[in-house]
Amino acid sequence: MKKSVFFGTLAATTLVSGLAMAGTLDDVKARGELICGSNTGLTGFGAPDASGTWAGFDVDLCRAVAAAVLGDATKVKFVPTTGETRFTALQSGEVDLLVRNSTWTFSRDSELALDFVAVNYYDGQGFMVKKDLGVSSAKELDGATVCIQTGTTTELNLADFFKQNNINYQPVTVADDSEAQRQYLAGACDTYTTDASGLAASRATMPDADNHVILPEIISKEPLGPVVRHGDSAWGDVVRWTYYALLVAEEKGVTSANVSEVATSTADEEVKRLLGISGDMGAKIGLDNEAFKNAIAAVGNYGEIFSRNIGEGTSINLARGLNALWTQGGLQYAPPFR
């Protein structure tokens, strides 16, 4: 008797927790706070600033989602994760959403049971060396010692690249970007390899940034994007369409500054639907009708986020390149809001 009561309770508990796991959107609303998995500190993408407020390209996407779901971009708790811990943190429900320079790959989508809902930065893996090393191509790196972050796709690409080019290297495996920087600057490795955007961000924080060059070879495709747990499509839709709303906003010229003015004056039907003036786009995915308007008002459109955090003129100084809108010859393309 006792045993059956016990197992009954057990089954009920797991069932309830299973249900709770399924509805991340309801969890976030009930909690009144979004928990976002972030980098441990990569300037420009996700790092706390001098006052302890998180800022960056990836961080802003978290804030946009918080603004869309909760109406307040400050209601986000950032959980720093390393390359090793990030997916476990997401799978175990420690974070609702992971926006942390994570590459979309087949095995992560299938085996790790994750869903990459969009690509917010099209990247590729590069190499950074000190200028006085006199290297101008990654293919000249035969015999070099390479600093590499563990638990990343770059680790595997590195092995493939050196094998394909029939050259050797000595790996120095590090846990995160700051450790890699320390080893690289101390000369414990000749070159540091990670996503080219990450290299630019690292270089920006180095005291002698001009003495380091990023080699021209880009050895892989690294589509980086926000990740949610597999099997929670409703939550996936919220994140995906919040991101696309930011893209459409840039395409239509809606910015954080003019969003309320555009809302009253626009004649564009898609913008009207986007900002919740006509139709019920927000309500259809369980949000406020003004959800996307709130997101845009809070962090601005994709272009604003890009230029504020990592664009030309910032210390990271990245060109839009592949991340320009499709209308400008880039790859950033949002499906229609209809």
Binding site: F87, S107, E111, T150, T173
Partner: peptide, 15 residues
């Protein structure tokens, strides 16, 4: 810890 419990664990997701 570094191979089986580190990189293998991460790359395969078999915690």
């Amino acid at each position: 810890r570094g191979t089986l419990g580190g990189i293998t664990l991460n790359q395969t997701g078999r915690e």
